[in-house]
Amino acid sequence: MRLGRYLQAFSLVALAVLLAVALTYKGLGDLPNPAVRDLALWYLYTTLNPEVPNMTVMSPEAVTAIVWDYRGLDTLFETMVFFLAIVGALAIMRGITLNEGGEGLHIERYGLSLITKTATKLLVPLIIGVSASIALHGHLTPGGGFQGGSAAAVAPLLVLVIFSTYYVVFKLRLSELSMISLRTLGLMGIYMTSFATLILGLVIGVNAYIFQNMPKANAFIGLPPALGGSLISGTLFFFNLFEFFAVAAGFTLVFILLSIPEVKAREVLKGEEHGH
């Protein structure tokens, strides 16, 4: 036991010293760097540049362009990791629901005081509005589906804490099933958008790729960069929209599961032990 302590302390000190040496001898590059890498210059030059029509993404936001176009497949699989983590949480909480027994309940007696509830009622539409704005302008200004979705998930969390779980499940009808449906809708939208250009190309009969956004040198088809005079950057707008729903619904689902009283969970676990 004593030896283990010394080993822990030694390895931590060694890690600190090695990190310091790496920094001193520029193992991480020149910090702070007066220039950026060539790869970064490529992204910066082509993110919105009408002079190179077969290279550009037509989005002034380089981060969203990388997330959903240059490295779009990467983000698709990260969305899948997110999906699997929530499926894992659902599997652990299987059978533990609040779907019945809400008839005789005085929902308005639960939760915090009336002042807090009124303030929350005013605040929640604002949170939803701001997060929708973050998500829908994701291809123009800093923001996007991930940012908007996690900001929107704050609103159901506030309602869960301030009005109680019963209010959310029995009054607002935000059950686990509806959240799973909304989430699946978002994921389906992401998959449909990633195939949109390919289907368009197959219908017209020209070369096209999965996850293609703007026209490329050997595939002259793409989604329109602007709709009715305002820039939507092809697929980026739709990806942000659907990712917003997927992320917000996924987090809301987990919070509803997490706020179910522990008594319910114990009932289910006892039932499993007795073989019911």
Partner: peptide, 10 residues
Amino acid sequence: PDIALVYIPV
């Protein structure tokens, strides 16, 4: 700013 936006709520 993108990361700041996602990091505040999370």
